[in-house]
Amino acid sequence: MSEVDAGPATVVAPPAVRARAGRRGLGRLLRTQPLGAVAAVVIVLFVAAAALAPFIAPFDPTAQHRDAFLAVPGSPYLMGTDDLGRDIFSRVLYGARTSLLVAVCTLVAGGIIGIVIGVASGYFAGGWVDTLLQRIMDTLMAIPGIVLLLFIAALLGPSIRNTVIALSLLVIPTFNRVSRGEMLRIREELYVESARASGCSTWRILRRHGLPNLLAPILVVASLTFAIIIIAESALSFLGIGTPPPTPSWGAMLSDGSRYMEIAPWMVVFPGGALTLGVLAFNLLGDAMRDFFDPKQSSR
């Protein structure tokens, strides 16, 4: 019809606004956030160390070499040995495994529960579901993190499983808060109303519109939380209520080594250094991702 003007079929998008998803996104991340890139590399090394520990570690981390207590770093003990003659390098590698295992399990458990609670609360905001769930979350958050951690860990006893449980409880409110906040925003979006008008079920809306839009803030939170979990696990192990001996854990190694700091500082320096690096890397990555996803930043 002559009155209908179709217009050009395609329009070139202005350069500032490009698709953020996909491989192009990763490249842009690395270019605009060099610190984040370095951090990502460190994390990859960390994960590799943890995953490949059984292959890289020169010794069994719990094996006591009784001819070499408190050996100076050198050969064959790259980072020296501890007071029971165990190779510190191997223990640092396996300690990465412990930290990673605890952190991943905690993120998965705490993250899923926190996200489910947050999404449900956010979508049904104002209703009894929201009120009930958020009251529970408020109660949980009112307890200072350290107190909660110590109480639960001491109550349940030292074991990796109990550490994960205690840390998950700590982490749930964070994910809840982020998810709920995002859901409150998302449910007001016009495209959610449009989806309802199309006949989409609540479940479908949450799945197709809620969760994918949640991904960005969750990733940032997850990365920062990773760092916190690693430190918390170390703290619990340091106090003797986290990972039980003789499983290597950086925190426990710090605790053991603290008594020998004047005589054998390598017992503390290497696990402490690994801990510092790991936490720093996750923090930097989280910062980088947050800047990356911030629309004000990305329109540079």
């Binding site: 998803a21 979006e189 016009l190 495209y191 109303e193 449009s194 989806a195 008008a197 199309s198 006949g199 989409c200 079920s201 479908r204 197709r208 519109h209 994918p212 839009n213």
Partner: peptide, 28 residues
């Protein structure tokens, strides 16, 4: 069905046009 005042906002920015249009078909 409904046509909104701000069409762009009524589309999920993460979905392609194909997905946007087929959504009601799949939902129904």
């Amino acid at each position: 069905q409904i046509v909104f005042q701000d069409p762009v906002s009524s589309f999920d920015p993460r979905m392609t046009i194909s997905s946007v249009i087929t959504e009601p078909l799949e939902a129904q």
